[in-house]
Design a protein around this nucleic acid. Structure first.
Lengths: 191, 191
DNA sequence: GACAAAGTGTTCGAAAACCAACGTTTAATT
DNA sequence: AATTAAACGTTGGTTTTCGAACACTTTGTC
């Protein structure tokens, strides 16, 4: 079953409209009529696709979350291995044209639509899985270091989102220093 | 008679698709199937709106030409009066979101679809109308100076197109110098 | 509490777009 | 000159979208 192009286009227009409106108003202030007006769709069509504006928002967040989930392991390992430049380039390639959308959605924190929280949660799981083997031997609580690592990575991610393609050696160095400090707490012997 | 939104959207998508394709191929290399594929419209719909790809192109050029025709006199007078900064700002305001489209169309020179030529022709008429009263008293041929002035103005226009919002004093100065030189040929007494 | 105004969600006939199929034209290949 | 493939332009049945109407709820005002 292939989707009719009209459905694809309608959803594309509606989603783009919501993103545009989110740069001007809060979710609560945006009406379905607003979305339809800026997306050039009729209200009846909107309701043929989404239950309400929150359904639309949750859908968009879910799509980006799924995408990130598929790439998170590779990016995580690059961070662990200190390949900061490759990480940044990879992140940018993954996002490509979706960057503006992700950037806007990162500012939205609704109950079941919080992209930033989802990203953080996925990264935290990676850290926990990574730390687990060392857990018992560690001086510092494993959870603390997992959270710490997650925060460093979220910082890299948000910086990349905001600044785009940059080959800034100073940034890479700074991140690498923090990375080493975190890893030192986990693997005192190595590194 | 108001146009159905669907017509507006379809035409918008088709036009945008052509612009995108024009950055990759020549007009001749672009097929109707190409346009339909990147605009997510069916071929039958394309033919419901346009006779062929040249009809589409001519339509787009005509729209921008009409727009420019309505603004050309104001912009022309700003040039004459040496208000270069106001001219550049005005041009940018006129073009707004159409700038990328105009930029691409400026590179296309088909028989009945040549936006650059249309702009030049409109400006030339302004210069001829402006010079006419001085014509007999002038040392230099009126036509030559009209062409000269037109070329200077086209240069400003294309520079603005390419570089966008810039408050560059050096550029404004350079243009102003040339402007004075041209006007001096027309009005030896004044200035 | 009564009222108007604005937003919500649903319904249905009309209009537009889709898409697959068709025969035709054009251009390149052998 | 014959053959093939690709692009052209047209057709008709199917699906989607539109737009206007409707009742209902929420919000703010007198």
């Amino acid at each position: 079953m292939v989707k009719d192009v009209r459905k694809i286009k309608t959803e594309r227009d509606i989603q783009q409209a919501l993103l545009t409106l989110l740069t001007q108003k809060t979710v609560r202030q945006i009406t379905v009529a607003d979305i339809c007006q800026t997306s050039l769709t009729s209200r009846s069509t909107f309701y043929a696709h989404y239950i309400d504006k929150y359904d639309l928002l949750e859908n968009m967040v879910a799509v980006h979350t799924t995408m990130f989930a598929q790439q998170v392991h590779v990016r995580f390992m690059q961070m662990i291995d200190g390949q900061i430049d490759e990480l940044v380039q990879g992140l940018l390639a993954d996002m490509a044209d979706k960057r503006p959308a992700i950037q806007i959605l990162f500012t939205i924190h609704e109950d079941h639509a919080d992209l930033q929280a989802n990203f953080r949660s996925l990264l935290l799981k990676e850290w926990q899985r990574f730390i687990a083997p060392y857990g018992d031997a560690m001086q510092v609580p494993a959870d603390l270091m997992a959270t710490m690592g997650t925060n460093v990575q979220m910082t890299v991610l948000e910086w990349t989102l905001a600044h785009g393609d940059v080959s800034n050696a100073a940034v890479a160095d700074a991140i690498d220093t923090i990375r080493k400090a975190v890893l030192l707490q986990i693997q005192p012997a190595t590194n």
